[in-house]
Amino acid sequence: MEILFLIISVFTVITALTALAVKDRVVSVLAGGATGLFASILFIIMAAPDVAMTEAAIGSGLTTFIFFFALRKIRRNDQDHSYKVSEVTNRSREND
C-alpha cells in the first residue's frame, strides 16, 4: 500500500509541475484538474472517502468546467491562446 501511495504522490507532484511549466493555458488547467484527481486517490488510501468524493466531483470536475467556461469568454478574440508576450503587446498597441 505504501508503494502505491508513493507512486501516486509522485504523479500528483508531476501533474502540479506540469501545470506550472507548460506554456498552453488549456493544458495548464487540465493538469490542475488531474492534480485534484490524483489527490482524491490519496484521500481514499488515507481512509477519507467523503473527502475523496468531494475532491473528485468538485475540486477536479466542476472547477475544470468553470475554468473552461471562463476561458471560452476570454478566447473569443484571443484566438491564438498559446501565450506569447510579443503578440499581446502588439494587440494592445493596435487597440490603442
Binding site: D50, A57, I58
Partner: peptide, 25 residues
C-alpha cells in the same frame, strides 16, 4: 441517492449538490 444516504455511506449534501450541478452542466 447520494445526499439521502449521507448518514449511512460516504456522501452527503455537498457531493450530491455537485452531482446535480454536473447534470445542469
Amino acid at each position: 441517492y447520494v445526499f439521502l444516504n449521507g448518514h449511512l455511506s460516504p456522501g452527503g449534501g455537498f457531493q450530491g449538490g455537485a452531482i446535480i450541478a454536473s447534470a445542469v452542466v
